[in-house]
Nucleic acid binder design. Sequence first.
DNA 1: CGCGAAGAAGACAATTATATCTTTTATTGT
DNA 2: ACAATAAAAGATATAATTGTCTTCTTCGCG
Lengths: 159, 159
Amino acid sequence: MAIFSKTCEYAIRAVFFIAQKTSVGTRVGIRDIAAGIDSPELYLGKILQDLSRRGLISSAKGPNGGFFITGEMLNQPIIEIVKAIDGDSLFVGCGLGLKQCSELNPCPLHNEFKEIRSTLTSMLSRITVGEFNDELIGGILALRKAEDDLPFNNKKKSK
Amino acid sequence: MAIFSKTCEYAIRAVFFIAQKTSVGTRVGIRDIAAGIDSPELYLGKILQDLSRRGLISSAKGPNGGFFITGEMLNQPIIEIVKAIDGDSLFVGCGLGLKQCSELNPCPLHNEFKEIRSTLTSMLSRITVGEFNDELIGGILALRKAEDDLPFNNKKKSK
DNA sequence: CGCGAAGAAGACAATTATATCTTTTATTGT
DNA sequence: ACAATAAAAGATATAATTGTCTTCTTCGCG
Ligand code: FES
Ligand code: FES
């Protein structure tokens, strides 16, 4: 169990990737995104469709089409992505799975969980979609890793 | 997506429940545990068997049998339960699902995640299985909730 | 000893998450 | 208009998680 679902992990990585491409002025197709973040291409398509329908990213069909992110969307916090995909149970639900999280009749871990949830919430609310563009372009941050953390990164060019 | 898997939530609640019963000197059967923590009875059986095999709880067959927790196990931190059921990906894995979490070539959320993971780890390492016995017995803490937080709790007696 | 209570174990079913494929639709450039 | 490109959409496949059922074994007690 990771914090986010696999779908959500792909979504966040993809959005960072698209933001970074947008910031250098290019739209980017599914194939390149999938290669750039190491995700199954066709599954990623479904996720991006979903994000696009929800207005978190934009897309254009046809030649020179692809996904991109408009200026104002670059300032969206990534918590929006998480909520769109995984819902908000991470932020409001009881950590032990009780029907509701409430102050009266709390579960044993309630107080501790409240703190973790608020840390998580504020972190995801603070970080924006476009925040890491420079570091990603500069290669300081990564959205994919080589097989075994090997020094060389033999990524294959998209066909 | 919650933090823990459903299975893990059941397991933690069950262990707290058993610990509390043990502290007043009684063993407790699956049926009562399931009723006490609001979980599917037969599925819970599987989970408890698993925990028992791993030595996190003890069980006895036959009349007056049931599950219980020995003295030293009461001091186990609940992170042991989480690790036994959900594994340790929550504590060591990359939050964005990259193959490894590492300082060189970190993902954009690496630093933030490191903090959240360490908070989570220390919290689960600090809290012990028997820690809430008194509060649970006193009804200050709960391991189950009524349907809609309604004041009445129309729980059906086990057959 | 032998019965009944209770957990152990494994087979199986349902649900949800993940992944893939195929067809359709829209857009651009010629 | 036409061809090429790229996303949209929907159907379907696979895997993991969650949940149920049935049978077996063990144990305590009379
Ligand atoms: S009641 Fe469980 S986290 Fe609040
Ligand atoms: S690399 Fe992603 S959390 Fe460390």
